[in-house]
């Protein structure tokens, strides 16, 4: 980068940095808010004005993973003394942990829902990206009759708010027995994402010179071998970018998950708000569930960040 030496240039630079800082703060503040809330005592979480200084505690996470009930009477001291430290945290808050017939602590459904989310988001992402990649390759490399119309048709599936079809989807899914199944949501999310993946990957495929594969064809490889050996490695950046977007869409989807699942295949997004509490609104539990829910996307995006940065600017292939 050129060294900016003029006075006005330096000032312009500072303004730019300031603007970037402000934008960063605006974008990060919800994350800060939800993260701090997840570690706040219940009283401070809803205090007005909001408290900035507080003693962090992990009670919300304990609550998130357990089932609880309001204490109707003060807990007996000997029971309190016998309880492990994490149970004491809950008892201090005026709640007791639910236990089964054997006296074992009953865990909440959060881990199951979380795993459901992972299974459904990862599978549908893999499906959408691989189908999108192959379709985009076809459109990019072969003369397809009515190519423009077909591409438009593919995109048209995203031209209405998905929720519009929620009721018919619900009825159809009920008829074919896909309600509350992993397969049902995987099919749905794949269908959402595949049109997007086709369009995004088409851009990346067009950027890869077809000379590479032609060289491989002449060198004695089949079209398939050329695709896997030459095209796919070149398309890695595009695949990474597309995968991140597809994963985030599937991971965060709320409306259909709420309507089409309730137990077995329910994902985390509809589950988290259902934990709002027994008797009072416990925002700290919601915040704890949300913070944990953010982690996979953060990890996924972080792992692919190099690809992603290059992918966003397209033209990722050096000419």
């Amino acid at each position: 980068m050129a060294v900016v030496s003029s006075r006005s240039g330096r000032l312009g630079n500072r303004i730019a940095i300031a603007v970037v800082l402000v934008i960063t703060v605006i974008f990060l503040s919800p994350i800060y808010w939800i993260t701090t809330t997840a570690f706040k005592p219940l009283v401070q979480a809803t205090s007005v004005p909001p408290s900035v200084l507080f003693e962090p505690q992990i009670t919300p996470f304990v609550k998130l993973f357990t089932k609880r009930a309001q204490l109707t009477a003060p807990v007996a001291p000997e029971i309190y003394e016998a309880a492990p430290w994490w149970e004491k945290l809950v008892l201090d808050g005026g709640e007791r942990l639910a236990r089964d017939g054997n006296g074992e602590v009953v865990f909440s459904a959060y881990p199951d829902r979380f795993i459901n989310s992972l299974i459904i988001a990862i599978t549908s992402t893999i499906l959408a990206v691989s189908m999108g990649t192959i379709t985009a390759y076809g459109f990019s490399r072969f003369r397809v009759k009515g190519e423009a119309d077909l591409l438009f048709f593919i995109l048209s599936t995203r031209m209405l708010p998905p929720i519009v079809v929620a009721i018919p989807m619900f009825l159809m899914y009920r008829a074919v027995g896909l309600n509350d199944t992993h397969v049902g949501l995987i099919i749905l999310y794949t269908a959402f994402n595949v049109s997007f993946a086709v369009w995004l990957m088409k851009g990346f495929m067009d950027e890869i010179p077809k000379e590479y594969e032609e060289a491989a064809l002449v060198d004695g490889y089949t079209r398939m071998q050329a695709f896997f050996k030459i095209v796919l490695p070149e398309a890695a950046t595009g695949i990474a970018a597309t995968a991140v977007f597809c994963f985030i869409t599937a991971w965060n989807e709320y409306a259909f998950a709420l309507i089409l699942t309730n137990r077995r295949a329910q994902t985390a997004p509809p589950f988290i708000p259902s934990q709002i509490g027994t008797g009072l609104q416990d925002w700290t539990v919601i915040a704890a569930g949300t913070v944990l829910f953010l982690i996979p996307v953060a990890i996924f995006t972080f792992l692919l960040r190099n690809h992603l940065l290059r992918g966003m600017s397209f033209g990722a292939i050096r000419k």
Binding site: E211, Y212, A215, L217, V218, R318
Partner: peptide
């Protein structure tokens, strides 16, 4: 098909496989 004809092709650009070393490029065919 191109593979069966036993012809070699040299192009103006993009003629080498990216990400491979020269050795791998030469041995690829």
């Amino acid at each position: 098909g191109p593979a069966e004809r036993d012809v070699a092709l040299v192009l103006q650009q993009y003629s080498l496989y990216p990400r491979l070393t020269v050795r791998d490029n030469l041995s690829f065919p």
